[in-house]
Computed example of a mutant assay.
Amino acid sequence: MKNKHRIKQGLSLLLAGGIALTNLGVALPAFAEDAPATPENAEAVTPETAEADTMAPNLVQITENLYDDLPDAPTGSYLGSMGLPVATGETKIGISAWVSDLYDGVDAHMDADALNADENTVTIGKTPGTDYAIVPLLAQVEYPADGAVSEIILPDGVDLLSYRSTDYEPIPADEQEQTEILHHTYSEQSAAATGLYVKASADFTAQLVYTDSDGSSQSKSIHVQISEDAAPTQMYAD
């Protein structure tokens, strides 16, 4: 199968702290969570500490050093529990064909076209000698709110596959894997992406539904066409 486990490890770096932490520490000052000045500690604020405060990274520095690989530049940030800035911005979602690695061992990448498209259509060929196609899908969320959730909705007749599947041995995902792949809750994340494989014998539509922490929601769909003439999905084992 496509090297999902390596990608999953790389995408974990999309949690608080940046896109693969590119160039972290080269030009970025140390991130320290200083307590704000209060009447009780105001006397501790000296010209030296005031000057140090001016060295705190601004949004441009944070973007260039941590979030330059995101399709859309952040509009703000806050310090996360890991001590690194978590970028914030307009929430965008997308569901599309998973056509390339999201993580190349150095940098993480997202599909900007999918984030900006209202919906997508993809045509996938059947696996040779079978009556089904293996369909690679990619669900993405850029700038999710803390406490937000998302769900990938697959129709009846479509089987979610385990990451242990191979080209000619599609293994259905068990209940635990289904939950881990299809349902996500976000905390201190600036971007997240999930690659998955499904087995289908007929055309279908899959949907990504994102619900913000305030209860508002948005959704996007991908229409998958199964064809005898299109190229099949190529998978390989780790």
Rank of each mutant, 00 (worst) to 15 (best):
T54A: 08
T54Q: 15
A52W: 04
A44F: 10
F31A: 03
P39V: 02
A37D: 09
Q61P: 05
T38N: 02
A35T: 07
P57W: 06
V60R: 12
A30I: 05
Y67M: 02
N58T: 10
F31E: 08
A42I: 15
P29W: 00
G25W: 14
Q61T: 08
N65F: 00
E33Q: 14
I62S: 00
L28T: 08
E43D: 15
T46L: 01
L24Q: 07
A44I: 07
A44V: 11
A42M: 09
P39Q: 00
A32T: 13
T46R: 06
M55K: 15
E64T: 08
A44W: 05
G25H: 10
P57I: 04
F31Q: 07
T38E: 01
M55A: 14
M55P: 02
A27Y: 13
Y67W: 09
V26M: 12
V45P: 07
A27Q: 13
G25Y: 08
A30Q: 14
T38V: 12
A37F: 05
A37S: 08
A32D: 14
A42P: 06
E33V: 10
V26E: 15
A42Y: 15
A44D: 14
E43F: 15
T54M: 12
T38M: 04
A52R: 14
P29C: 03
P36W: 01
A27W: 12
A30Y: 11
E51C: 06
E51I: 06
E64S: 02
G25K: 03
N58R: 07
N41R: 02
A35H: 12
A37K: 01
E40R: 04
A44E: 07
G25N: 08
E64D: 13
A56C: 13
E43H: 15
N65K: 05
P36E: 00
A32S: 09
E43P: 07
P39D: 03
L59W: 01
N65E: 12
L24I: 09
D53S: 14
P36D: 07
A30N: 11
A27M: 05
L66P: 08
A32M: 11
E48K: 13
I62G: 00
T46V: 08
A32Y: 13
T63Y: 14
A27F: 14
A35N: 03
Y67N: 02
A32C: 09
Y67A: 00
Y67F: 10
P29M: 04
G25D: 02
N58W: 05
N58L: 12
L59P: 05
T49F: 07
T49G: 01
D53W: 14
E64V: 13
I62F: 05
E48I: 12
A50E: 03
A44T: 13
D34N: 10
P47N: 01
Q61N: 04
A56I: 11
A35I: 04
D53E: 14
E51V: 09
V26P: 01
V60Y: 03
T63D: 11
Q61H: 03
D34P: 04
T38I: 10
E43I: 08
L66H: 09
M55W: 12
P39Y: 02
D53Q: 11
A35L: 15
M55Y: 06
T46Y: 11
M55I: 09
A32K: 15
V26C: 04
T38D: 04
A44G: 13
A50H: 05
A50K: 12
V45C: 06
P57N: 02
L28F: 13
Y67D: 07
